[in-house]
Design a protein around this nucleic acid. Structure first.
Lengths: 128, 128
DNA sequence: AGAAAAAGTTATCCAATGCTAATTTTTCAC
DNA sequence: GTGAAAAATTAGCATTGGATAACTTTTTCT
């Protein structure tokens, strides 16, 4: 009864992940940074940021900086964790090249269930 | 210059795969069968079938049967191949339970690149 | 400081894909 | 063969998520 349904889609997860990644490189994240990073238009970013702000994942001062809330940070970290796990598996286990591994991880991270992610983690631990 | 872009989405691939699976169980495939199989409404099926027909993957006599064209058959067989490969990997290698493996395979089959699918195939061959 | 450039926003549009309601066609039981 | 039920279709609505064009605000340069 605590959890509200935040209705996170693949697209919104991508935007949130982008903010997370960009936050690690620079103190402030701007609309333009996200647009360049994701190769989408600024109005698309604007709407996504508004949605994520309404959903409690981001803070956004109009015409100003974009920041993760604690909830947004934890959500984004989880997405990135999935991403890195999948990419590692694709490259190390399957021997997929870096570019394809990156692209596929971007897609797969949104569709694999928590159970499967956990099993993948355990598998990679076993392999060392 | 031979290949037309048929613009296949995850959703359309699901419909095509459903027709393929249902074709193997019964001589004729109807709108209602697909709707039940995919748990979607009949109008949704109707539109998808029209699109797939326009794209050359299905033949459909109005108010009548739905059949795969040779191109549709080969495309659907490929999707199902991906599906089975992924499901086998999830269950045999990662030890994911059947239900989660099935659900995740349904999603993953649409987003993994041909390269990665090939590498997954090779991996499973190596493991025997 | 003022003009130009850059960034951000707003207003719309479009396509995809789900839905329900209402209509049409086919099938089936009698 | 006729009428009811089932199936299929059509029309229309909502949401998501991309885009462009036009406008506003902020930043930067001289």
């Amino acid at each position: 009864m605590e959890k509200k349904n935040k209705n996170m889609t693949s697209s919104l997860e991508d935007y949130l992940e982008a903010v997370f990644v960009l936050s690690q490189k620079s103190r402030s994240v701007r609309m333009t940074d996200i647009a360049e990073f994701l190769k989408v238009s600024k109005p698309s970013v604007n709407r996504a940021v508004n949605t994520l702000t309404q959903n409690g994942f981001l803070e956004h001062i109009t015409y100003g900086d974009i920041m993760l809330t604690p909830e947004g940070e934890s959500y984004a970290a989880n997405v990135l964790h999935r991403h890195k796990l999948i990419k590692r598996f694709l490259m190390d286990t399957l021997k997929v090249d870096e570019e394809n591994a990156e692209n596929d991880a971007c897609k797969m991270e949104h569709v694999m269930s928590p159970v499967t992610i956990e099993k993948l983690y355990e598998y990679l631990e076993r392999q060392g």
